[in-house]
Simulated scan of single mutants.
Amino acid sequence: MEDKKYLSTTKLSKKLAIPSKHLFGQLQDKCYINRKDDVWVLEQAGIDAGGKYQVSEKLGKYIVWPETFQLEKATPVGMLTATTLGQKFELSARRINQILSEHGCIKRHVKGWLVTPMGQRVGGEQREDNKSGIPFVLWPPAVATNPSLKNTIEELKGDTKEAKEFPVNAPSADKSSGFRDKMKPKLRTADGHFVRSRAEMLIDNWLYTAEIVHAYERRLPIEEEVYCDFYLPAGKVYIEFWGMESDPKYCERKKQKIGIYEQYSFSLIELNDQDISSLDDVLPRMLLKHGITTY
């Protein structure tokens, strides 16, 4: 006979002095329970947290929890995960964590993230996944309106007034195209580089927040005078953004340039207009092929 006492979700809500509707919502957000055919069912995470079923003649089959169940295992009402915070800015959880790390609010763990004293000052609360043990941080809604964080996000997304004045699809720069003389690099990135287009700014900002060392417009180590868009020393990888593929002359130069990369067996990542709006999905996959991992 078990000594451990169990409470129904409704009785547990009374013990914790919160509305039962809120507790059910928190347990569902945490994937402890789910609603199927108008009935609450336990998920594996809920079982791992100590939940189980009981059956009575009056109530039928229902979910119960250990009397010692800790509410902090569920997401507090109103608190934001990196995922929900990212949804407010149309960014991935990975990108939000990178930005919060750059602001000194969190730091990397072997897996996951740890809140720093600075993060605690703005309301960050340390949590860990009940199943995997991977640490993560919850944030109060006020973080989404933090001026410093919003400014950084605007810069990284290219939403500043200055950034919008520059073309997104400006071509790559090399001497033979004459583009280096026609359009000077005037758009400042988050790490202080000056680039020639908004697309290049978004790529540079992505590499910076991912903590990937990179050079902008580095000359290729060959006899011909050719410049790449970006160079990553860690994997000896070059990145080219092709932005004016409707221009026949540009396409011809693109073909010649790709031929140079192939001739010297240089590792090349190619990006186009469609990739710019989904760098969080595209770049980690492409970089991994060259042995470069992103967190």
Rank of each mutant, 00 (worst) to 15 (best):
V77M: 12
F69G: 03
A93T: 02
T68E: 15
F69R: 11
A82D: 02
E90P: 09
T81K: 04
I96T: 03
P66Y: 07
Q87E: 10
F89T: 03
W65G: 00
I96W: 00
F89G: 02
G86M: 00
I96L: 05
L91K: 06
K88N: 10
E72A: 13
G86I: 02
G78T: 05
F89Y: 12
P66E: 08
Y62A: 04
I63G: 04
S92T: 11
T84A: 04
F69W: 12
A82Q: 03
Y62R: 06
F89P: 00
Q87S: 11
V77L: 11
E72V: 13
V77K: 13
S92C: 04
W65D: 05
W65V: 08
A93H: 08
K73C: 11
S92Y: 02
A93Q: 10
T81E: 04
G86N: 05
R94D: 09
T84R: 07
A93E: 06
T68K: 15
R94A: 13
R94H: 14
T68N: 13
T84P: 03
A82R: 00
P76Y: 01
M79W: 04
T83F: 09
W65T: 03
F69I: 11
L71H: 12
F69N: 05
E90Q: 15
T81A: 05
P76R: 03
E67P: 08
T75V: 13
Q87P: 03
E90L: 15
V64T: 10
R95K: 12
T68Q: 14
K73I: 15
Q70C: 08
K73E: 14
A93P: 05
E67M: 14
F89L: 04
R95Y: 11
L85S: 02
P76G: 01
R95H: 12
L91A: 06
A82N: 06
T68P: 09
A82Y: 00
G86T: 07
A93K: 10
V77W: 11
L80A: 01
L80R: 03
I63R: 00
V64S: 08
I63H: 03
I63F: 04
N97P: 06
F69A: 11
K88S: 10
N97D: 07
P76M: 05
N97Q: 09
T84M: 00
Y62P: 02
F89N: 09
Q87Y: 09
G86Y: 00
